[in-house]
Design a binder for these strands. Structure first.
Lengths: 197, 197
DNA sequence: CAGGGAGGTTAGCGGTCGTTAACCTGAAGG
DNA sequence: CCTTCAGGTTAACGACCGCTAACCTCCCTG
């Protein structure tokens, strides 16, 4: 079982480069020729791997929201019955890892959703909603005083806070990854606590 | 002196509709014909008011960052020498008002900046930076323990939190504007306090 | 009442872009 | 050794889009 040290497949290469380009210049701002050039093939060669430009964006966005949700569910399952406070910290930590390690995907995530076909957009929205509801549930266990609509707003706002990483200056101007992660974590907890006050 | 109850000028109409369309479908996703149609004229009629599509976006983005900065400076000036805590609350309140009342502009603000000509983008970035520095300064008066890089990160993150309003479900699903504003305000303060801890 | 400018109109040009068609090539497999 | 097929190539089409040109029509003003 080659547990994932394999060379990345062509599809994966393409998706990675497309994500970077889309994040930089927007979906409509990038041509298929540029995406091809980024992986060393040119233009229409991409159509051997994807049905079209839209399909790449769809796979990226579905992948992102899917991975977020799966990771969240896994953490919930692992903590089963444990301290909700610890679980909330675990969720926050997972989201921060994602926000710090996959910044272009974070950017795409809430920027290009409207460029999707109706069916894909509905799928992504549904995954996002499930992820939010997961957080809402845990949050209300930690802060039972928090009404559900307020909890949902609070979760969206904290996502806004955590997803601010692309605005935090390119890696290097930051105080280091660990310190940044810790700062974001503290702020998220502080924001939640204040929301429940 | 007609203090601003005047009918909106054509330019203003166009800018308003263009902002809505750009926020909905992205700069490249909107044609000039659609912008024209939105104000009752069609296509190239826009060129009587703007040098081009780019010019509309530029005016919108410069206007946004300019208004944010001006509003912030005004609040600082008004509080001159007063309690920094009160001033910080005032800045937060001002930003929330903007985020709640001009949601499409908030969306544009951090989504389409890269579509600008170099000179315009530099101008907008400079205005944004000044606005951030304004917050950083006040924040460090309130929390002297906070180092400058951390303060800057904290400010960007809180902007992410406050600018999450477009994700908060369309007006109506919200607990009411006042309650939302209050919630956001508490969370921002909580996040800052936690950052300084 | 001339005339001129502000603010429209439609037609159309030139460029870009996503996608398809037709063709090529090298390596694997019977 | 021949075949097949995955994965490329270039050429080109058709649609769209930003913008200009040329023209029209009020309305204001001297």
């Amino acid at each position: 079982m080659a547990t994932r040290t394999d060379a990345p497949t062509r599809r994966e290469q393409i998706l990675k480069e497309a994500a970077l380009l889309f994040a930089e210049r927007g979906f409509h701002g990038v041509g298929v020729d540029e995406i091809g050039a980024a992986v060393g093939i040119s233009g229409p060669g991409l159509y051997r791997h994807f049905a079209g430009k839209d399909a790449m964006l769809a796979e990226l966005l579905v992948g992102i929201s899917g991975r977020l949700l799966t990771g969240g569910k896994r953490r919930v399952a692992e903590s089963d019955g444990g301290d909700p406070e610890v679980l909330l910290d675990s969720l926050i930590e997972g989201h921060i890892d994602f926000a710090l390690d996959d910044r272009p995907l974070i950017t795409l995530h809430d920027r290009e959703l409207d460029r999707l076909r109706d069916s894909d957009r509905k799928l992504v929205r549904q995954l996002q909603r499930q992820y939010v509801e997961l957080w809402v549930e845990i949050l209300r266990e930690v802060y039972p005083s928090l009404a559900e609509p307020a909890a949902r707003s609070a979760v969206h706002s904290v996502f806004g806070l955590l997803n601010s990483t692309p605005h935090l200056g390119r890696p290097g101007s930051l105080p280091g990854r660990g310190a940044t992660a810790e700062l974001l974590h503290r702020m998220a907890r502080g924001a939640f606590a204040a929301a429940a006050a």
